[in-house]
């Protein structure tokens, strides 16, 4: 013990020195086990979110109302899947295979963002996801470009470029609908009513209730707090809603000073129920992924067996 303990302390000190000096931690570097485990959980959850997120938007591919909107939606969903690929690759550098990540997802041991457990009920939901869900994601991901783990930070740089395009295309859908017929305006408002609160919940519990935050902040995996990022998103988004005539569904929303808003109470009971698996689409989303994966088993097997791969 006496010989090991100082070595560990030295390793930890060197690790933290790098973190403090803003030097990225790379896959072959020594890292504390808690750091590795935190990253495995966070990056794989992020990857699963990108992939599961293909489903609610994919729900409207066959009903996209114009050739242009169908092309954009196809390309956007393809981007999300591509983000999943970057992130699985980043997570694999921590010593866990993609097969294992998928197995953990299917066994319920790994989570994905709860926001994708809500349904897409009208075409404006596709706009609302781009504008609000991707908008919330970017707010978080911009800060993650500075995260301390190199492969994750680099994946974030690429992802942020595409997400900002997604956010704009989502807002464009909402804007077009608000310029359109009364029925379209109602769809847009309905979509905002249903997606606003889940988007705010994406930032996670209040800082005082966030179990993983403190160590993650110390080791600079996480660079900004949940509440700081949520407020930033709200202050940015409310003027965008007002500009096109949409009303944010928060009767207790207060304007504190110019450009600074305070939101009403978030329904955390709903948040935890969805996290626990009781959201409207939890079962549907996971079963869809499991079914596609199972149905693809023979294809993966033949791809590995085929001589054309030699």
């Amino acid at each position: 013990m006496n010989t090991i303990a100082p070595a560990m302390e030295e390793l930890l000190a060197a690790f933290e020195e790098k973190i403090n000096a803003e030097v990225k931690i790379e896959p072959k570097d020594w890292m504390p086990e808690e750091y590795r485990q935190h990253l495995i959980r966070q990056i794989s959850q992020h990857a699963h979110s990108e992939v599961i997120g293909m489903q609610p938007e994919g729900n409207w591919i066959s009903r996209a109302p114009s050739l242009r909107s169908k092309k954009i939606l196809l390309a956007k969903i393809q981007d999300e899947g591509g983000h999943g690929l970057y992130l699985y690759s980043a997570a694999e550098t921590l010593g866990v295979s993609r097969e294992q990540f998928i197995a953990w997802l299917h066994e319920g041991k790994a989570k994905y963002s709860s926001v994708f457990n809500y349904p897409t009920l009208n075409w404006a939901d596709v706009g609302a996801i781009g504008w609000l869900v991707d908008g919330a994601a970017i707010t978080n991901q911009v800060s993650l470009q500075r995260t301390s783990y190199g492969p994750y930070a680099r994946a974030m740089v690429r992802i942020c470029k595409e997400e900002s395009f997604h956010q704009r295309q989502g807002y464009e859908i909402m804007w077009r609908m608000m310029e359109g017929t009364k029925a379209q305006q109602q769809m847009a408002q309905d979509a905002l009513n249903r997606w606003w609160w889940p988007a705010l919940m994406m930032f996670g519990p209040h800082d005082s209730d966030s179990p993983h935050s403190s160590l993650a902040m110390k080791w600079k995996i996480k660079r900004e707090s949940n509440d700081y990022l949520r407020d930033k998103f709200i202050n940015k988004t409310i003027p965008q809603a007002e500009l096109i005539g949409l009303k944010v569904p928060d009767p207790n929303l207060q304007l504190i000073s110019e450009g600074i808003y305070k939101h009403g109470d978030i329904n955390w009971d709903e948040f935890w129920e969805v996290v626990k698996g009781n959201g409207p689409c939890n079962q549907q989303r996971l079963e869809h992924h499991i079914k596609a994966h199972k149905e693809g088993a023979w294809v993966r097997a033949t791809a590995l067996a085929s001589k054309s791969n030699n």
Binding site: L74, Y88, A292, E295, G296, V299
Partner: peptide, 8 residues
């Protein structure tokens, strides 16, 4: 979309 045998 999202029914493929693997992500790629």
């Amino acid at each position: 979309s999202s029914h493929g045998p693997f992500l790629e």
